[in-house]
Amino acid sequence: MRKPLNWPPDFEQLVEEHQSMVFSLAWRMTGDRGLAEELAQDVLLELDRNLARMKSPEHVRFWLRQVTVHRSADALRRKQTKAASLGTDVWVELEERHVLVEPIDESDESPLGRRIEDLMAGLPESQRAALVLRYQEELTPEEIAVTLQSPLATVKSQLQRGLKLLRARANEYLKEYVRGT
């Protein structure tokens, strides 16, 4: 495969282009905004280290999605292990600190949009990864299967189950929201 003419581009340009994608993926995978920023920074730095191996813009996008999903899953597992060994207080404190990093402007968001990270965080890891790639990144089930290195049938089943579970939880939340307003 031939490389595009002005390839590889400036690292700064790539960060500018992909930072929101990487950050959003990490946030929706981990449910923790602070941890997501750390992960996003690490992934982008790893891209800098591997820039010479990148063949095209599509390759960069694919690589970033794959590495972000895997890194987020690893971080979640580490977090769960630590929480289990230390007790949950430490993580509650850390999460509060992370959330306080920067307030989000929620004024023009739907109720679902405001709570989507929390709702996603309640799903099993594999379903969450499939749903984020499907609805945030607009990937087809085939592309998700390649990114997650899973069989297509598994991905389709994860999407179906995840969507059902998310819908049930979103409905519960929306009912509470309507009652609360």
Binding site: S20, V22, F23, E37, A40, D48, S110, L112, Y135
Partner: peptide, 25 residues
């Protein structure tokens, strides 16, 4: 699914994240 697509729009990266990444690089 339509609502979910809208809700799952990409979030803006935190302010200054790009600068922090470039500084670390």
């Amino acid at each position: 699914e339509r609502k979910l697509r809208i809700a799952m729009q990409r979030r803006e990266a935190p302010l200054g994240m790009k600068q922090r990444v470039l500084a670390r690089a």
